[in-house]
Design a protein around this nucleic acid. Sequence first.
DNA 1: TTGTAGGCGTTATCAG
DNA 2: CTGATAACGCCTACAA
Lengths: 337, 337
Amino acid sequence: MPATLRDVAERAQVSMRTVSNVVSGYTHVSERMRTKVLAAIDELDYRPNPVARTLRTGRTGMLALVVPEIDVPYFSELARDVIDAAAEVGYRVMIDQTGHDHERERQLLTGEDRTMLFDGLLFSPLVTKSELLDMHGATRMPLILLGEHDFDGRYDHVAIDNVAAARDAVGHLIETGRTRIASIGSQPLEEYSTPLQRSAGYEAALADAGVDLRPEYVVTAAHYSRADGYSAGRALLALDPRPDAIFCFSDLLAFGAMRAVFDAGLRVPEDVAVIGIDDVDEGRYSRPSLSTISLDTQFIARESVRRIIDRIEDPALPATEIVAPHKLVVRESTAVE
Amino acid sequence: MPATLRDVAERAQVSMRTVSNVVSGYTHVSERMRTKVLAAIDELDYRPNPVARTLRTGRTGMLALVVPEIDVPYFSELARDVIDAAAEVGYRVMIDQTGHDHERERQLLTGEDRTMLFDGLLFSPLVTKSELLDMHGATRMPLILLGEHDFDGRYDHVAIDNVAAARDAVGHLIETGRTRIASIGSQPLEEYSTPLQRSAGYEAALADAGVDLRPEYVVTAAHYSRADGYSAGRALLALDPRPDAIFCFSDLLAFGAMRAVFDAGLRVPEDVAVIGIDDVDEGRYSRPSLSTISLDTQFIARESVRRIIDRIEDPALPATEIVAPHKLVVRESTAVE
DNA sequence: TTGTAGGCGTTATCAG
DNA sequence: CTGATAACGCCTACAA
């Protein structure tokens, strides 16, 4: 049976008030009292009960980070940075993965879950915006959207300019002389906003260069996985004329696509150039190393944690949008000659 | 101001007890009462306060998973499986990364942290065993050790047989005719148990085959990262005679080492064979694909969650050890001819 | 500077 | 089957 504040008070012959003062940052406690209390705490091996403290103060000191899949490198690298940024300001992070399951997203958003022991929600969503608004409406849980854009200014979000990112990637392929540019990553059924935006950027870049969009060059991917990149890549290589470049909506898709190119007996970048988005560590060591659009996960993590803490402290704050920077990183997979 | 149980009771003209019964799915409630209460809940948009419930019941419904680095694929794949396994039994998972920081490990273990809002700890440790015993001693927090071995039977753990895993990997290299077998991954300073065990397996396999251990073929790595694998690989390739095989203590090290081989103008597996441990997804798509020892993260996740829940329910349970299976997966990076 | 008492929102005990 | 009431452990006006 763990010791409580009352036990310590009895043991030290002082009031609970004094013990509490000592425990939670000294505010005017005499030296005699303090040592007496500390001794009692030590003897009883007392630790404050965080749940009771939470009930009283209304703060759990915990944030939730919700991502589609934690084992996708982009999200695990983001999680790493979020955990670190949160730790710096005294918060811990609960992670949940929705696994492309709308129902699980909905439960978190509506607060329907029975274990919502956190002060705020960092949400990297699949759902489209209108659905989101309806779901979250009733709750008062502070919420920051990650990686999204254009939510009518009704929510805080730390966004990526997905249209520009895709445009930069495809623009690079065009600059290096490729003209038959395929893409992998648009969504088969649902209208998720990230792939929609990246599709828009792809189309815009082609239009800018006066290159026709060939519908057969646009291959969908249900998940942003290596496996889906591989099968999409195989499909593209069977086309005639064969693409001379592939823009993948994520690095993971790109790794799969590159492997498909090799298995077809072709070379990257000589026969087919490949570029991704995310800039995960893997791409620096893959063969060939992967050209990509680098998204600044540290920036996203820091800003979103900063922002949600502001909002927890003042729920009335107006919603803001912060756009994280991105930049083109040229490596071997799009080299010329 | 969110509605409370009392508000609902007043609104529905019943006692708090009845409302509580309805909310927590108690069976013996008359149909009349139930509908009346549900109506009131709906009108007031009432949601139970999880913190109050937790204070009363002593359960948070949350587990903590502590790993060195969440962005290391092995750990993020493990986290994925742990989150899923926990969700199946109604638990959520808080993730913390110690980043090779002993102090952070200690805080979690001693319960010194001020936000320990979880019912049990799944711990993938860096510390050696005696340190661990001393730290955790006082706390009553249920604890399961992951991936470790040989803790005197004083703690529950879901172990990997690291000695056998390393031995199998090196044995495979020997069977395929390699004789100058280097290793990357022993630790430079501290005596962490996982690398110690893998070193032991490496040495044992060489001894089994009557192959001499050359000290210069043993290269340390501070972290199990691609970067460290790369620099270790470079160092090995400069030796004379050059190794014809490299056993890496993790897949990540292996990816770095393979890249070093290519950058030196050599080939994998023709000039140098490479094998890792972990079997992360990346190794199925890398070029060449990576031979490795597959660790069953699903098994580890399921068993550790099952075990910690048993222990939460009955803290008096005797400690048990479960050893997760592993198996050799042969791919291109160790092929012959 | 320190003590007393009330309440955070829930569940559990004990009557009825 | 339902109602009143006491904890759960802590923090903080308010009082001394």
